[in-house]
Design a protein around this nucleic acid. Structure first.
Lengths: 123, 123
DNA sequence: TGACGTGTGTTACAAATGTAACATATACGT
DNA sequence: ACGTATATGTTACATTTGTAACACACGTCA
């Protein structure tokens, strides 16, 4: 499970909020944020699809992108990696401390907690 | 303030524990961990010095390396960046939640807390 | 039917990072 | 003085990521 880079995470965030979206639609959202040209956005989307971070479909004759993994699953991986390497905390993590981040809903936090702190060998 | 990569962080960790160290000494500690050849370690050390992550001195006719920034300062930057981009938590962070990480002593946690949550415009 | 906008495939190049060899200098022991 | 180990300088090449242009196909509108 390859971790998304910072830019890739930005794209994933807009897609978690609303998917599937076309490259053009994604560009309208992340272009201003990342100051990217449409080409750049498209290249990054292609690479994300290659890496199976995104799934590709065709709707109304256009390519649309959907995240393969849920927000909770992806962020749990990113967080696990971070705490492992930076703080060397291998065991359960104090996820309650982050619950006031607006990034996830209550249900998503519940899923993330489960993923981080319970059985760890799926996927 | 360039953030250290994962490998660079590994090197910084051994130097925070004991510095200054020569390339050879560092290799003895990180080589097994990272499965690196001596050359690789040396290249990374050079680049870290270029980026001013490490300071270079000569002791007993050998080059020795010392971290420029303290563990607390470096980790506070890394953590700030992480919570910003991943969880979009911009304000104060619940650092108490991490205090059982063995990475830092009580005093270092105190420094890190101060850096993360108080005035934010030094260095 | 021909120009134009939009979608898509392909290619390009630079910087950062991972990973390492080669070559040279220098000190230390014999 | 000579060989040998260690230290240091330099160079190399691949992969990932950032950043983007070029070229072509297709549908729509005049």
């Amino acid at each position: 499970m390859t971790q998304p880079s910072k830019s890739e995470l930005t794209i994933l965030k807009v897609l978690w909020a609303e998917a599937p979206l076309s490259a053009r639609e994604i560009q309208e959202k992340v272009g201003p944020l990342l100051d990217w040209s449409f080409s750049t956005t498209r290249t990054t989307l292609s690479r994300m699809a290659e890496k199976s971070l995104l799934q590709l479909d065709t709707r109304h004759r256009v390519r649309v992108y959907t995240p393969v993994e849920s927000k909770a699953r992806t962020l749990s991986g990113v967080m696990r990696e971070f705490f492992d390497t930076v703080l060397e905390m291998k065991g359960p993590l104090p996820t309650a401390a982050f619950h006031d981040s607006k990034m996830l809903s209550e249900e998503e936090w519940a899923e993330l907690d489960r993923l981080l702190n319970e059985s760890h060998d799926d996927d």
